[in-house]
Design a protein around this nucleic acid. Structure first.
Lengths: 222, 222
DNA sequence: AATCAAATTCTTGTATACAAAAAATCATTT
DNA sequence: AAATGATTTTTTGTATACAAGAATTTGATT
């Protein structure tokens, strides 16, 4: 698939950043990475350049690359946009979702809901992602889908761990229930509103998110 | 400012694409560009790589780079997202705009409105941009502002010329009037709604936009 | 001992060299 | 003359070499 070395290296590096294996602020030494991947510096530089455009890496001229460190303010801003784009997805999905997609969405919700009683956060995290992915897809706007996914990827390195508040799964799942119903019923306005609340910057979700922030966010700013 | 050659070349290339000097589909030969800029291929490749991530350039493995050619479907998708992000800007601006920004917005509208009677499309284009930029800024969400601007840049190479329909300036300016008032009055819901209509995919604006599309959009797809 | 300056080392950025793949050209065959 | 296949030429992708700017270390001075 990936024909060039750079194209193979890029997703690996990206994954390491997104999953938090490489934390924000970490220096990305070209020579070290080159050795690690068994290539010369050239393809490494290519990958880092691309990552810098997408915002995951920050390149300071003549001073090397680091995993992008962003401020709480930036994070709130990104979350605000994320909520809006997700709401747009829901609105469009309510208008454009196909019967097959309805079925898949229902199934994804059932899977999520099965964990309602439990505190199985890791598994819920995955199933929750899948449900949201289905909503993005159902918007039938591939550009929007790509933007939302990229933004989510960009946010993910900044959650150190998933929210682990008792009862959160149940609450989230109930919100999903209403949202899924609105989308399937074709109620665009309701789907949009429910999504806004679900991801809202004022709501629990974001507070939860802030609560999981590593302490270094409380001081510095890029 | 731009310390490296690549950092100097990137904006030039970007500008050439955005302004339509380099049209979608044009091959970007590394050697030719290297000669033109008086550098080796290395910084050229760096710039092209970065442009590929932001979507202005498409790099096909082993087959070189071209100015990104996108389908009408993609364009409609991007416009749909653009409308939504602009609406978000307006909503946030209505809540967060400062007195100084109100004044600037009013002034920008006055400038726009001065051209209402005329058919001075070129000048109106610039003033219209300025007014919208002020709205982005007034959202006080720098990430959102950046996203909207980038999306606009990405859309711009695909309008061959500005819409030149008689009376369009007057209509646009009137819409601005209502929008500016809503923002200044702090009516977020109205500001959002007016913006949606102003940029709406269903509305005149997008139809105008489609009408200016170069003919090659009518056939192919990437 | 602390601080500042000079020199050294290390790292980034660019150029060049080389290898491999794609495109183009040319010859051969039907 | 058209089509197909082999050969040449271009062009991309990677490695290496080199230059210039940071960072660090060392040494001198207060």
């Amino acid at each position: 698939m990936a024909t060039s070395r750079a194209n193979e290296i890029l997703p690996v590096l990206e994954q390491d950043i997104v999953t938090g294996k490489l934390t924000p602020g970490t220096r990305l030494d070209e020579t070290v990475l080159a050795e690690k991947f068994g290539v010369s510096r050239t393809p490494i530089r290519e990958a880092l350049n691309r990552l810098s455009t997408s915002g995951l890496v920050e390149i300071r001229p003549r001073r090397g690359a680091i995993v992008a460190a962003i401020s709480v303010q930036d994070l709130m801003n990104m979350f605000e946009v994320m909520a809006d784009l997700e709401a747009l997805c829901a609105r469009l999905a309510a208008r454009r979702i196909t019967p097959a997609e309805k079925e898949a969405l229902r199934a994804a919700h059932v899977d999520c809901h099965a964990l309602s009683g439990t505190e199985n956060f890791d598994e819920y995290y995955v199933l929750n992602l899948r449900l949201h992915d289905l909503l993005y897809k159902a918007s039938h706007n591939s550009f929007l889908e790509k933007q939302v996914c990229e933004l989510r990827r960009r946010l993910s390195p900044h959650r150190r761990l998933q929210v682990r508040i008792p009862g959160r799964i149940l609450a989230s799942s109930n919100e999903h229930g209403a949202l899924v119903k609105a989308v399937i019923d074709g109620d665009a306005a309701l789907a949009e509103k429910l999504t806004r609340n679900h991801v809202a910057i004022q709501g629990e979700r974001f507070t939860d998110f802030l609560a999981t922030l590593p302490s270094h966010y409380l001081q510095a700013s890029a």
